[in-house]
């Protein structure tokens, strides 16, 4: 364990440091301010995959790695839709997932918002519409904001969340 603490002290803080990237720092500051103003300091997100290729989920997981550390900004991924302000929806809204996505949405308390993540739910990824695909998601749910990309990088997701917070 002592080895670990030595390493820990040597590594220091990785989270992309403000002095390196002032633009990113400003972005994060305004994100934190918006979360504070509009969501009393904590924005709860329920991530729902409606038929993705799993890269969009991987990028959301990457948001918690030491380089991005999203929770620091007051943004949390929660386990239950009943604890969520926002549903972050990835994937193609498959025929098999559609009822479950609608269920999860119904479980969310008002006020609630849906943000689509990546090109899939907007039907803009290379997949084609067929009988198994119900995307675009806007035909089934009110979409407050869209974060484009295939997949959007963690940075793009952070920017996207900020744009959403500015909008509402």
């Amino acid at each position: 364990m002592i080895r670990f603490w030595n390493k820990r002290l040597k590594t220091g803080t990785l989270t992309e440091a403000p002095e390196i990237d002032t633009e990113l720092a400003a972005l994060r500051k305004s994100l934190k301010d918006e979360v504070k103003k509009k969501f009393a300091g904590s924005l709860a997100i329920r991530m729902v995959d409606s038929g993705s290729c799993n890269a969009c989920e991987a990028e959301c997981n990457a948001l918690s790695n030491p380089y991005y550390d999203l929770e620091r900004l007051g943004i949390y991924f929660v386990a239950s839709p009943r604890h969520a302000d926002v549903m972050l929806l990835s994937g193609l809204m498959t025929f098999n997932m559609t009822p479950h996505v609608l269920d999860a949405y119904a479980q969310m308390p008002e006020p609630k918002w849906v943000i689509t993540l990546g090109d899939c739910p907007a039907m803009l990824s290379p997949f084609e519409k067929n009988f198994a695909v119900n995307a675009p998601a806007q035909n089934h749910l009110p979409i407050a904001h869209h974060i484009p990309g295939c997949p959007p990088s963690p940075d793009e997701i952070i920017r996207g969340l900020l744009a959403f917070l500015k909008k509402i």
Binding site: N96, N130, A132
Partner: peptide, 23 residues
């Protein structure tokens, strides 16, 4: 499983090999 079933096999029928790559 199969909640994520996008019918990829069907989707790719009728495409050229080059066009199928993006999917």
């Amino acid at each position: 499983h199969f909640y994520k079933y996008r019918a990829v096999e069907k989707m790719l029928e009728g495409k050229t090999l080059a066009d199928a790559k993006a999917v």
